[in-house]
């Protein structure tokens, strides 16, 4: 068997069962913010215990293992189709063993393919690798959080939102309010300013791959991120929407050039279980981070 299948299978397992350390750290920090023994504290505590149990048992953190989205950096001379086939094979195996729930459903008949494969599933975005390394990022994002994503078109009179960063701020606060607990708060938000409708959502999702403790290289956006975290948490939605201090764990904002007539603000809402991991293949050896 292609060794890439094994490494990809390991990537899927780890993404589904072992939450990345930065997200876990942020959850622990959020628990400290709440009153011990109160409902918000208990909810965060259950999340953290669940993360620990899932890691130990090797079982999925959440039964909704989402749709599989891969971001692949392909080295020169490597056939992307071979990578696609290996990823498909790994998904088939991961589904059989229960690391993934079968989530690929025909949109009209409702028939489940049973193996997580289908039209545009897995969704793979290829780009050239800057060096000889093959890098594969996997994002598993559940349906409940995906449903709470939103796209705004500025200006928006109802929100008094113009075509500027203040307008962007207003859209995000509004989206977090409307999400309430439905996307499994506390959420992690990926935001994309600009692009077209499709590119905006794709760009927003990509923001979810950023480490939670990084700082936006653009100082204006870094400031916007901080302001959004602070003010979204003032909404009081709280963990699972029960009320509390932590409504979002992080906000990450990026941008794309836009058409002069269009100003989209696209928001990808990730549940607290922001599951993403990276596989790097260098010098013939694969390693999952």
């Amino acid at each position: 068997m292609d060794p890439l299948v094994n490494w990809a299978l390991e990537l899927i397992r780890k993404t589904s069962t072992d939450l990345s350390p930065d997200v876990e750290r942020w959850l622990r920090r959020a628990r400290e913010e709440e009153a011990e023994g109160g409902t918000a504290w208990n909810v965060l505590d259950a999340m953290i215990r669940n993360v620990e149990m899932s890691r130990e048992a090797g079982t999925p953190i959440c039964q909704d293992t989402g749709l599989t989205t891969f971001f692949v950096q392909v080295p020169r001379g490597t056939d992307p189709e071979a990578i696609r086939e290996a990823l498909q094979q790994a998904i088939r195996l991961a589904t059989q063993e229960g690391s993934l729930r079968p989530n690929s459903v025909h949109p009209i008949t409702g028939k489940n393919t049973g193996d997580n494969l289908g039209v545009d599933l897995p969704h793979i975005e290829f780009e050239p690798s800057p060096d000889d390394g093959l890098v594969i990022d996997l994002l598993l994002k559940g349906g409940g959080s995906e449903n709470t994503g939103a796209q705004y078109r500025l200006p928006d009179a109802g929100l008094k939102a113009g075509r500027d960063l203040e307008g962007v701020y207003r859209c995000v606060v509004d989206a977090v309010h409307h999400a309430q607990g439905h996307g499994c708060a506390p959420g992690i938000l990926g935001v994309c300013i600009g692009g077209d409708r499709a590119g905006g959502y794709a760009g927003a999702k990509r923001q979810l791959l950023r480490p939670l403790d990084d700082t936006n290289p653009d100082p204006a956006l870094a400031e916007l991120e901080e302001r959004l975290i602070r003010d979204c948490n003032r909404l009081g939605v709280g963990p699972m929407g029960f009320g509390g201090r932590t409504t979002v764990l992080a906000v990450k904002v990026g941008w794309k050039h836009r058409h002069p007539a269009s100003f989209f603000v696209s928001i990808a809402y990730s549940c607290w279980a922001d599951r993403h991991r990276r596989l790097e293949v260098r010098n013939g050896v694969g390693k999952v981070f």
Partner: peptide, 13 residues
């Protein structure tokens, strides 16, 4: 009744 979303392993037990 509200269960904790995402607590898949804990609730399965």
């Amino acid at each position: 009744l509200h269960a904790v979303g995402g607590a898949g392993t804990l609730l399965a037990r």
